[in-house]
Amino acid sequence: MRTLRQIAAVSGVAFTLAAASAAAHAEKLTIMVGGATKIIYLPAKLTEQLGYFKDEGLDVEILSQPAGVDAENELLAGAVQGVVGFYDHTIDLQSKGKEVQALVIFGQVPGEVEMVSTKASETLKSMADVKGKTLGVTGLGSSTSFLTQYLAQRAGVPSTQYTLLPVGADNSFIAAIKQNRIDAGMTTEPTVSQLLKTGDAKVLVDMRTLEGTRAALGGTYPASSFYVQRAWAESHKDDATKLSHAFAKTLNFIATHSAEEIAAKMPKDYYGNNKDLYVGALKASLPMFTKDGKMPADGPDTVLKVLSAFNPSVKGKHIDLAKTYSNDYVSAAVKTAAK
């Protein structure tokens, strides 16, 4: 009996040590999303819903901030390991001496839409008409801020001739339109579909498709992405590869399933009481996503061109685009999946 008890005790200790080792190995990773309910960032929550993080042996927590610039600050402070936000932040940050790298590209286009309030639409018919107007963005220094300034400048209106107002996203953006605090503003689905349904706003510039994006920005504009600090990726290659693999699987799921099937996987609070509107918004957005998470060949140059046009931090600076993204982690993940 004593021998059995000793064996049981030793086994118990071994089991406890193994469990502790496994728990230590599956260290919690926190990813901050610049507005989790935005369809442009759908892959973040969908990966969690599909169980792909767990399939990779990862313990991942998804948090949300209303604007990408807030998520970026959390990353730089070391409060989170990764961000789901716009690729353009990696270029902006490199110009400020910060090394951040996109490992997975979700969107080959911004998925952003410049909406003009129905009341202002009589006089505001293109970006050339924004002089003296108040334009809504999610946050100052956010990607919506970058894109708004570029669209206005391309239309011949310098940033000194209009006002940018941070109004967040979703319901706070809708409220800003309804309360006439902004004449126009940049937002994403499902907010776009909600405003069109109520008749409170109209589409001014549509960057949900490749055609619309090329017309507005002059090329493919990789946008929503998963990015991390380069030093973290290099010192946590296993975690970085597994995260990339999980996201790549989700992008493949999106490419091979209908909007209805994708919506069925999402939590109810993402679409509320109007699932049909959410499905419609999703259908309008599906062309934006990459199928494999890789950077489009002409993408980095277009983004650099846009930022160099007006961003004083980037203008005239040498940017090493090769350091702003990597396809290696997705490629490594695909090889792992093929085994």
Rank of each mutant, 00 (worst) to 15 (best):
L4F: 10
R5G: 08
Q6C: 03
Q6L: 10
I7M: 15
V10G: 09
A24D: 08
H25R: 11
K28H: 12
K28E: 15
I31H: 11
V33E: 02
V33P: 01
P43A: 04
A44R: 02
K45F: 03
L46E: 09
E48T: 04
F53L: 13
F53G: 10
F53A: 13
F53K: 09
V60I: 13
S64A: 08
S64N: 11
G68F: 01
E72S: 01
N73L: 13
E74C: 05
E74P: 00
E74D: 10
L75E: 08
L76H: 07
G78W: 00
A79C: 03
A79T: 03
G82A: 14
V83H: 13
G85Q: 11
F86C: 05
D88M: 14
T90L: 12
Q94I: 04
K96Y: 14
V100P: 04
Q108L: 05
E114M: 14
V116I: 04
S117G: 14
A120Q: 14
K125N: 03
K125P: 07
M127V: 02
M127I: 02
M127L: 08
D129N: 10
V130Q: 13
G132I: 05
T134G: 07
T138R: 12
L140I: 13
S143F: 10
Q149M: 08
R154Q: 15
A155D: 04
V157Q: 10
P158Q: 10
Y162S: 06
L164A: 01
L165F: 04
G168S: 12
A169F: 12
F173D: 13
I174L: 00
K178V: 02
K178A: 10
D183Q: 15
M186K: 06
T187Q: 12
T188G: 00
S193V: 01
Q194S: 12
Q194F: 06
T198F: 00
A201R: 10
A201I: 04
A201E: 11
T209C: 07
E211S: 13
E211G: 04
G212F: 06
A216H: 05
S225P: 05
Y227R: 04
Q229H: 05
A231H: 09
A231S: 15
A231K: 15
D238V: 04
A240G: 03
A240I: 01
H245L: 13
H245V: 04
A246L: 06
A246Q: 05
F247Y: 06
F247P: 01
T250Y: 14
L251W: 00
I254W: 01
E261A: 15
A264N: 13
A264S: 11
K265P: 02
P267L: 00
K268M: 06
N274G: 00
N274H: 08
K275I: 04
D276C: 00
V279I: 11
G280Q: 14
K283N: 12
P287H: 13
M288S: 06
K291T: 11
K294A: 06
M295K: 09
P296N: 15
P300E: 13
V303T: 11
L304M: 10
V306W: 15
V306A: 15
A309H: 06
K317I: 02
I319M: 11
L321N: 07
L321K: 09
K323V: 05
Y325S: 03
S331V: 02
S331C: 01
A332K: 11
V334Y: 04
